[in-house]
């Protein structure tokens, strides 16, 4: 019993803040490493469809994005448009876009270049088919339909 009395008589020591900067730095480095800056602002609205059989996109640096969706600006209509880099584009601009993307990479990396198609789920397939035909023509065969991962139902 005497032991307990002795303990309760003492003040609880305050939490040491000496390690606080370490924790903050740890968090800081974590966010610095994981952060990916979005290079282009989206001009089109994209809510991707859901799918269960998804694969992760590997090697972000080897991926080029094509966005297709209705414009954010309502004045430009509701028809789906193509966005390459940070401006609207036509189907015929894709060949040049892919060429530029190829020129920016090493010879040995070119075979692994992937085109990720970020497409709004309410887009009609007509424009998507046109884009796919154009990609076939320029030889960018590796594509990835960007989707959200849905839970697999059994």
């Amino acid at each position: 019993m005497a032991k307990f009395v002795k303990k309760s008589g003492k003040d609880t020591p305050g939490i040491s803040t000496a390690s606080l900067p370490d924790i903050i730095f740890m968090l800081l480095f974590f966010f610095m490493v994981t952060t990916t800056m979005r290079e282009s602002t989206l001009l089109v609205k994209i809510s991707p469809p859901e799918a269960t059989e998804v694969q992760k996109l590997e090697k972000k640096s080897l991926v080029s994005f094509i966005y297709i969706g209705p414009p954010q600006d309502k004045k430009l209509g509701t028809e789906s448009q193509i966005q390459l880099n940070s401006s609207f584009a036509k189907v015929s601009d894709i060949a040049e876009f892919i060429e530029r993307e190829r020129a920016a990479h090493d010879e040995q990396d070119r075979a692994f270049l992937t085109t990720s198609l970020k497409i709004d789920k309410d887009t009609k397939m007509g424009i998507v088919t046109d884009v796919k035909q154009e990609l076939r023509k320029v030889g960018a065969f590796k594509i990835n339909y960007s989707t959200l991962k849905a839970a697999r139902k059994k």
Partner: peptide, 27 residues
Amino acid sequence: AFLLLIFFLVTTTMDVDSGIARMLPPP
């Protein structure tokens, strides 16, 4: 450190790019 931390907290986007991978056939 706090300032930088908050900056990165705000700018970070945690979207993992995933999708259905396909190969297009050559023309």
